[in-house]
Each structure stands twice: as C-alpha cells, then as structure tokens.
Nucleic acid binder design. Structure first.
Length: 482
RNA sequence: GCGGAAGUAGCUCAAUUGGUAGAGCGAUAGCCUUCCAAGCUAUAGGUUGCGAGUUCGAGACUCGUCUUCCGCUCCA
C-alpha cells in the first residue's frame, strides 16, 4: 500500500474502531487536537504503563517517578528559556509568502552594512524588541528597505508574535489574576523538584526521575494526525550524573532507549538515530530516535545531554542551591564534594508512540482462495499492548454455552481485559476482534460441556488449537508477560 | 499563513441538462447446535458541513463561511 494511503487508512480505521476521534467533532472539530476512544485509551495506557515499569521498576539504574502539576510558577519558564526563546516576532513577505523571524531578518541585513551602520541598526532593533514595539520594527524594516531574499520586494505584512506557550489566568478576579502558562514540556517539573526528590528519597547520583504527562504547544501549523498535536503527552526521564561523565551516560541511554524499542518487536530497520549538528542552547550533545512513519522517518524520541543548564538556571532564578554533595572518592582519594549535577534527558512522545504502534500493527491481508475473495484488516499488536487480551465467544447463545463462557470471563477478567460476544457467526466475531487487535479468541462449543476443552484461536496465524478451559488464563498471561 | 481539491446515512459511494435523496457494507433486534467477512426476516439511521442568494423548484448553480486532505511555508 502506498504510504500516504496507509496513513489515511490508519486514521480511518482508528476512528471507525474507537481508537482516536477528532476532538469536539460535533462542533466541526478543534485543530490538531484528538480524543482517544475506548480502545485507543487502553492501547495508550498499556504503552504508558510499560514505559513506566521499564523505567522505574525493571531498569537497573535507580529511577523514581513523579507527577508534577501542569501549572507551574511563571518564573519557571523564564529560567528554562521558553519565554525568551519561543516568542519571537515574525513577519511575512506578501510576495514570496516567506516568513522570517524579525531579528534574523534585520541581523542578516545588518551584516551587509558597514560595521558602524550595522551596529547602530542592531541597537535600534534591540530597543524596539525590548519595548515590544512591533510597529516601530516594521517601520525600521521599511525605512532600511530590507528586502525578502526570495522575492526581492519590501512588501511586508504587519509583525506578529507567535507564542509557543498557551497562557491562562490564575485568580478569580480578572484584574487581580496572574498570567500563567500551560507547560510546553514536562521536564521542568522534574528540575524544580530535583531537591525534593533527592533529599526525601535519599537519592545518590547517578539517579533518574521519570514523569509522564500532558504538555501543550501552540504550533503554528500542526498536522500529521496524532503526530503533532497542540495538546500531547510526553514520557520523560531526567538522569542526574556527575559532571564529566555525561558523555558516557549519554551513550548509555542512547543504547538503553533503543533496547526498549527492540522489546516492542519492531524491526530495527524501522528506526534510525539522527544526531543533532546544531545544538539547542542547553545541550552539549543531542540526538533523535526516528521511526519510519507512513509519512517518512520522523522524530519519535529525543536523547539530550542537557549539561547543568537547567539546574543552574533554576538556582539563579530561585536563589536555591541546586547542589549535590558527592561523598564518593575520586582517583586522588578526595570526595567529589558539592556540584550541580549534569543531566541526560530521554523524552519520548506518547502519542507519537501510539501512532508508531498503530502504523506497525496495521495490516490489510488478502485471504482469497480460488473459490472466494476474502480479506481482513488486522492490528498485530504484541499481546502486552493490545487493548483487549482475550475474547470469549460461545458458539451459540443457548444450550448452556453462555454460562460456561461467563465462568471463564469471571476468572480471566481479574487478570486482564476481556471481551464477551455471543452475536453473529463465529467468523464475523473473529474478524471484529482482528480489527481491534485482540490476540486471542476462545470459543466454547457443545463439546466443551463434555470435556472442558475450548478452542483458542490465534490472531496472527488464524490457527486454532484445543486446550483445557482451565489453561486459558495461563496461556494469555504468559503471552502478555513475554 | 498561501495555493489546490473535497465535504451526501457510522463507512465507501450513487442521484440525466436543476424536478420525490438511494445502494452496498456496517449497526440494532430476531431466526438457524453457526469454528474464520458478505444465509434469512425486520428495524433504525439524512434540514445533502453551515448560512445566504438565484429559481415555481437547489444535493447540483452563485457568494460567503467552517472543516478536512494534498503541496508550500513555519516551528521543533
């Protein structure tokens, strides 16, 4: 299937079978916002839970989790750099339709001038930027006849500001309220709690703090289904290390995170690392793990060596010492003493991971034989991630078969998500379960009443086998934990 | 943001030059001791995205608007 069609097919399937709905659809929807339906939410929770257990329980490193609030003190975002770095005034050239950051446009022009003139221009620009004087900036551009590099014209729109962060007010009376932001990343909730966790948890470096939660970004153009949403969920882990060891830990986490991806059963060829050449202001090394989505290789997860930038910033703004006392001895037999830890960040988009799992699982199979045409759509989730683990299907809805099915339901639903269905032909029920990725179906027939044996049907192979009803729970549990 | 295309039942699509909005699948309720979709019966579901205009009459024509998709741009 052509890739662009595959994305369309996945979007259609996700909506049709209760995985992902457009937000507020009855009111024509809300751009770049989606809701998870009854099966989507199970899939998403399974991914989230697996990531959480892998980080905070299964990992050999010492990692604990937190759940910080979405609302944070406004100074957080000054310290992090989000206020200054993500609210740049922009201007569009009406002829070329090209958009520029105003400061980049003027700086670029200033470089073409004699040094003294360029310097004077930049000083004017700085003053106007500091005063948020957009009209003045536009006048400055026009007076200097700064042209668009593409169209060569000076036909500019008004200057507009694009804020990455959504804001809202805290306080019941508007005049007395304070503007606060919805967090654009979860990481800062970890950094501002660094001391709390380190002290109350008696954490020794190296250690990590994990968090899963919503973040919000006012993307100018948000497209690609649940790939780029304005409200999205991140799974982040900040790993605090001794300064000077960040490089080896960076490499360690690159490998560790790829190991996690391997356990999802996705071929390694569908992934690649993309090393950042141009580094963000806070990083001394950074890379992305990219996955081959239906629309091409795109960033799924970022691994960043964030240095001590964040903790130092918070120390500066909060005037609280973000120090750690390291009693371990160095090669000279001296304690490492006080320092601000360096940080390795792993940050993966949960919604993007859902899209990856859906993309990987979605298969249209042609089952035609010479006698008749046949096909099915099946979601080949690994059992661990499947929304429903087991469907229990009495062959007919009488003769005591539903009663036997209910017995099995009673036992199994204590351990995993089950689905009961007695309507329609058995084949139709199998196919419905294929479409939502249920790995196992168990059929109870008349023979079951005699010998307590049931038919278990495997989703991917469509093969069936007779097993004792008492074994069903264990078979499914084993597959989930594999 | 710009350009292009498209919006009809849950889904896929019909509806002669403007003349009573339909089908298949799906869904629901039944029938059939029914192990891999499309057996039988019945039922529900639509102000044709929304709003104006032209017309005796608009799903169709005109304008506006909203949404989605594709490309560009932007951001990360």
């Amino acid at each position: 299937m052509a890739n662009e069609n595959k994305l369309q097919a996945i979007i259609g399937h996700a909506k049709e079978y209760g995985f992902v709905f457009p937000s507020s659809e009855i009111y024509d929807g809300l751009g770049a916002v989606y809701d998870y339906g009854q099966w989507g939410v199970e899939l998403k929770r399974n991914i989230r839970d697996y990531w959480w257990r892998w980080m905070t329980q299964m990992n050999e490193q010492n990692i604990v989790g937190i759940d910080a609030a979405i609302f944070m003190h406004p100074t957080t975002w000054k310290a992090s750099g989000h206020v200054d770095n993500f609210s740049d005034p922009m201007i569009d050239n009406k002829d070329s339709k090209k958009r520029y950051r105003v400061d980049h446009l003027i700086e670029g022009f200033a470089e073409t001038l004699p040094e003294a003139d360029g310097k004077a221009l930049l000083e004017q620009m700085e003053q106007l930027l500091a005063a948020d004087d957009f009209a003045g900036l536009k006048t400055l551009i026009e007076n200097n006849k700064i042209k668009c590099g593409v169209s060569g014209t000076v036909n500019w729109t008004d200057i507009r500001q694009f804020n990455l962060m959504f804001s809202t007010q805290v306080g019941s009376v508007a005049e007395e309220s304070n503007e606060i932001f919805l967090r654009p990343e979860t990481a800062q909730g970890i950094f501002v709690n660094f001391l709390n966790v380190q002290k109350t948890g008696r954490m020794k470096i190296p250690f990590g703090i994990a968090q899963v939660g919503k973040a919000f970004r006012n993307e100018i153009v948000a497209r690609g289904f649940i790939f780029r949403m304005r409200e999205f969920e991140q799974m982040e882990m900040q790993f605090f290390v001794r300064p000077g060891t960040q490089k080896q830990w960076y490499e360690y986490w690159k490998e560790q995170r790829m190991e996690w991806h391997r356990t999802l059963g996705i071929p390694e060829s569908k992934y690649r690392f993309h090393d950042h050449v141009k580094l963000a202001h806070y990083a001394d090394a950074a890379c992305d793990i990219e996955y081959d989505f239906p629309m091409g290789f795109k960033e799924l997860e970022g691994i960043h060596s964030r240095t001590d930038f964040d903790l130092t910033q918070h120390q500066t703004y909060s005037k609280k010492k973000m120090q750690y006392f390291d009693a371990d001895l160095d090669e000279n037999g001296k304690a490492y003493g006080n320092y601000i830890p360096y940080v390795i960040e792993t940050s993966i988009g949960l919604d993007r991971t859902v899209l990856m799992i859906l993309s990987e699982a979605y298969v249209e199979e042609d089952l035609s034989t010479e006698e008749k045409q046949d096909s099915r759509v099946v979601l080949k989730f690994i059992p661990k991630l499947a929304p429903i683990k087991l469907a229990i299907l009495p062959l007919t809805k009488k003769d005591g078969l539903p009663e036997l099915a209910e017995e099995l339901m009673k036992e199994c639903r204590q351990h995993f998500k089950c689905f009961y269905e007695e309507k329609d032909t058995i084949g139709r029920r199998y196919r419905r379960m294929d479409a939502i990725g249920t790995p196992f179906c168990v059929t109870i027939d008349h023979q079951t009443k005699e010998d307590q044996m049931v038919t278990i049907r495997h989703r991917d192979s469509m093969e069936q086998e007779r097993v004792p009803m008492s074994e069903v729970k264990n078979i499914v549990m084993k597959a989930i934990n594999a």
